[in-house]
Amino acid sequence: MREKLLFVTKGGKDFDNGFSYVAELARTLKADVSILMIYNRRVIDAYEDIMTAAVFAEAGEFHTAKDILHEKENELKAAAEQNLKELSITYGMSSDIDYHIRIGDVLSNLNEFQKNTPNINMILISPSLSKSKKEIDLNKLIKKISKPIVTISQPAQAGA
């Protein structure tokens, strides 16, 4: 059975940073890759949107309020899906790659994902997440996750 590597990355412009390493590692180990892209809720919940939704909710138009709250989320998901598709084509991995988009904090999303996907052999944390102590607390991660965790970082002098 082929091994499966899980690449965990932060949604946003640098989401693909470190993926070239993961793609190479997957080729070397003859493994498949899953991508888990996690967006911070703050990115989704823009202040004006929340206020607009609140106004509609006060007026009893709950469906419209819900649509407003989910509009940005849906937009982001569509864009992320497009990006991930392009990424898998760039690295010639379209047949082996599967991707998942989540919104919320990294730890709880990753924990839930690995519980529901037991055949993951290794979890690779993207450089954008590895360097951000706010986004990811390795101590907490180690307590919750039982699979080997690999943090990827990029030395300042190295190019992307």
Binding site: L25, L141, A158
Partner: peptide, 18 residues
């Protein structure tokens, strides 16, 4: 050698073997 192993630094942690 693969370019990526020169471009990126990786640190592995096995939570089972802390």
């Amino acid at each position: 050698l693969p370019q990526t192993i020169k471009l990126f630094q990786v640190e592995s942690i096995d939570p089972n073997r802390i």
